[in-house]
């Protein structure tokens, strides 16, 4: 098996190249972020970041917007996807295509369209702060739609929607009760993955918040990048950690979820 041994050599080589590409920038960022004090290793950059009221404010703003986005997204997507599965399977490809549109339209193009549409009558939304926030949250819903819809759609595929619905109906459940007490509990893993992906998308998003001029984390980071040296590295690493936590939670919950499904709850 000389072939086998050679294959292993190439596998090692390319595997290591991949590992280096992943870890060198991460380690480099970590190393750089610890050098804010000349000549010694310190957490000064992190202290500066967490001590900056503007960081806390923009993080809180982005987190609030992320939660609002997730809420709107769930309210829009779950009943729609459920109804499509139950009554209108023929429409599913159409809706799937719609949910893919945000992939085709780059965010910078999308925000251009939003500004040209909603900064003038009849749909003036950029005049006051709260309507701009509403517009921003709606835009976040749109750009994270592929994640949320796909997660919920995949979740529904694993359920027997018709049987569940008929069972609930024969027990006298109303439509809201069916969705809230039968469908949603069965979809909680799917909804949670969609929500976490949405959270990860919204929290560091730059373009929409920047061009709609709202005080989110993305524009704050750009500002730091222009004015500071070591704090951006700390912010970069923190963002990576946040993505890591989101993805880790998704994997953790979907593993637990797979075990939950056969019980037919």
């Amino acid at each position: 098996m000389t072939n086998g041994r050679r294959a292993t050599f190439w596998a090692w080589l390319w595997g290591l190249v991949g590992l280096l590409y992943f870890f060198v920038p991460l380690y480099g960022t970590l190393d750089f972020s610890l050098r804010a004090k000349r000549g010694e290793i310190s957490l000064l950059a992190y202290q500066n970041v967490f001590g900056d009221p503007q960081f806390l404010a923009s993080f809180a703003y982005s987190a609030r917007m992320a939660l609002l986005t997730i809420l709107i997204s769930i309210l829009l997507v779950v009943p729609t996807a459920y109804w499509l599965h139950l009554k209108l399977p023929k429409l599913r490809p159409v809706v799937e295509l719609i949910t893919l549109l945000p992939f085709i339209i780059p965010v910078i193009v999308y925000v251009f369209g939003l500004i040209r549409t909603f900064s003038r009558p009849p749909f003036l939304l950029t005049q006051t702060e709260w309507t701009t926030d509403l517009l921003l949250a709606s835009a976040y819903v749109v750009i994270s739609l592929p994640y949320m819809y796909r997660a919920v759609d995949t979740g529904l595929n694993t359920l027997d929607v018709h049987t569940l619905t008929e069972a609930a109906q024969s027990l006298g459940a109303s439509w809201p009760a069916i969705i809230l007490r039968v469908i949603v509990p069965n979809l909680r893993v799917a909804i949670l993955s969609g929500a976490l992906l949405t959270f990860a998308t919204v929290i560091g998003e730059l373009i929409l918040a920047d061009f709609l001029v709202r005080p989110a984390l993305g524009p704050y980071m750009v500002l730091m990048g222009q004015s500071r040296a070591y704090e951006p590295a700390a912010l970069g690493l923190l963002s990576f950690a946040l993505t890591w936590i989101s993805m880790g939670l998704i994997q953790f919950f979907s593993r637990g979820g797979a075990a939950l499904h056969p019980s037919g709850r």
Binding site: V24, P25, L26, Y27, G28, T29, D31, F32, S33, L197, A200, G204, E205, L206, G218, M221, V222, G225, A229, P232, A233, L235, G236, L237, S239, F240, T243, M247
Partner: peptide, 20 residues
Amino acid sequence: NFGGVPLAFAFIATVGRTGF
């Protein structure tokens, strides 16, 4: 899934002019 501004920061810290 990692991109945007934080990714730029990571590369500036690593292969920027004074990077690691």
